[in-house]
Amino acid sequence: MLNRERTPLTGRRVQLMATCLCDAFYDDVAAATVEVLEHAGVEVAFPEGQTCCGQPAFNGGDWPASRRVVRHTVRTFAGEDPVVVPSGSCAAMLFHGAVLEFEREPDAPAVEALGRRTWELADYLVNGLGVRAWPGRYPARVALHRSCHSRGSDSVAAALTLLRSIAGLEVVEFGEPEQCCGFGGTFAVTFPHLSGAMGQLKLDHVRAAAPDVYVSADMSCLMHLGGLAAREGRPIRTLHLSQVLRDALRGGEAKP
């Protein structure tokens, strides 16, 4: 569905794009991503100048502002090494959204080149490195959130491959998994009623399946759903996929 032409992988060195959300709120997710990648034998570099992928302005319609950020990102993640990002949404911004807003720009080729070497974490592990089974143990019932930017990509299948391979972990299904949770970036604050109503539906479906953990490849969706649930006084336990993979290496869920 989305542009997905990729430069073939050669070495085992990557640049980590931590995402602005992890930079600001979810440091443990970024840390888990580093540990997971290193466990897979990957050398992780972290370009210090990184900020954001540019998606908020892109979705908000302010393409000149977004292009400014994307240009910074292109400069920051220079070189040939692939970029791995623990977010399907940021990855899709780079391989699809940015390409769209640079259609008529002279530096479009550089943006496209970055898109071709950008990978969502699970996609990188499974389809890039060929990991089919994840070691360790994680005794829990896990429900996997299908974040919308992974729609039509290989990320959902990749995440399921990894989760299902973990000893002790049971993947549980829930109703209407393909329906959006209502985050949608600025949509969450511009259309708060709709966003909240969509989130409630998602929470109803997830709660009905009663998983121990609700896992996603995108923290943005979890920030919204977790925030709604907490406000109701009925919190749900949410984790990023990278945290589950790391904790499996440590033998199980780190008890909250």
Binding site: C20, T51, C52, G54, P56, A57, F58, N59, G60, G61, D62, W63, A65, S66, R68, V69, R71, H72, G97, L100, E101, T186, V189, T190, F191, P192
Partner: peptide
């Protein structure tokens, strides 16, 4: 998305949409 960009170009007011200019400055 193209239509959102067009609306922004034509300066159509959009209640509740956060301004992105300052953020873009910061993020670059």
């Amino acid at each position: 998305l193209r239509l959102r960009a067009r609306a922004k170009e034509e300066n159509v007011p959009s209640p509740g949409t956060p301004p992105m200019g300052p953020w873009a400055l910061l993020a670059s």
